[in-house]
């Protein structure tokens, strides 16, 4: 009986509060603060304003609306009127309920800019990010990286000076260290060799099996009619 009650409560909870496919906000406050700060430093260096604007539509009824930030501050969509030059990552994402048959989707994706040769989504793709990144588990890092790299792309186009790389001048906190060692470099680069090997091994088993069957059939035929392959 208690199990039945628990199951019923779970079903009611699922119907009343359907889970969405992605967390909102996409970029958490602490990260938004840091990203806005980095963009503000880039603006000081380059005289180009930067920002991100992600229109979130949650069809399951969850929180949606415009998630934005800029070199003018976290949570502040870029006020273009206050900028001589600007580049803003713009995207629209639609989250569906996990019970829905529809998939989450990206309704828009681009860079809004008044620069003569603005950064492009093609350049972001070369850096490992495209619109599908906005639907991935790491959608927050996608927004942070795609926005954060805009000043570098603007500098590479010769439109502004580079934002210099600055190594720490003091030792980092002793407790801080890299975590979660990545998988083998060989596997990432040459997974296809392993796949080819597995395919070859599978073929080998098939061919060997066919060979054995053929031999057995031949022996059965030698023994004459009525004998069976066992």
């Amino acid at each position: 009986m208690p199990r039945l009650v628990a199951t019923l409560l779970a079903v009611i909870a699922l119907l009343c509060f359907p889970a969405t496919s992605a967390a909102v906000p996409i970029v958490e406050q602490a990260d938004a603060d840091e990203l806005a700060q980095a963009l503000a430093e880039a603006t000081d260096e380059q005289d180009v304003c930067y920002g991100w604007e992600v229109q979130v539509q949650d069809e399951s009824g969850g929180p949606g609306g415009l998630e934005a930030g800029s070199s003018q501050g976290p949570g502040r969509p870029l006020d273009r009127a206050g900028c001589r030059r600007y580049a803003v990552l713009q995207a629209g994402v639609v989250y569906t309920s996990e019970t829905s048959e529809s998939e989450d989707s990206v309704s828009s994706f681009g860079i809004d800019s008044n620069l003569p040769r603005p950064p492009t989504t093609g350049q972001l793709a070369e850096l490992g990010y495209d619109e599908s990144s906005l639907l991935s588990e790491d959608d927050d890092q996608a927004v942070i990286d795609m926005t954060g790299v805009l000043p570098l792309l603007v500098a590479e186009a010769g439109l502004a000076p580079y934002v210099p790389f600055e190594a720490p001048t003091e030792p980092i906190p002793a407790a801080d260290r890299p975590t979660d060692s990545p998988s083998s470099d060989w596997w990432r680069a040459y997974w296809w060799v392993a796949a080819l090997g597995a395919l070859g091994a599978g073929l080998l088993v098939l061919v060997a099996g066919a060979g054995v069957m053929s031999v057995l059939r031949g022996r059965a035929a030698e023994r004459g009619p009525g004998s069976r392959v066992s």
Binding site: A38, L39, E41, A42, L127, G128, Y129, D145, M146, G148, V149, L150, P151, L152, Y162, V163, P164, F165, E166, S181, P182, S183, S184, D185, R188
Partner: peptide, 16 residues
């Protein structure tokens, strides 16, 4: 790479 970071000051790649 296993992971990457694209920033205003450069691109960082992580390997094993």
């Amino acid at each position: 790479p296993a992971d990457r970071r694209n920033t205003a000051s450069g691109v960082f790649l992580r390997y094993s």
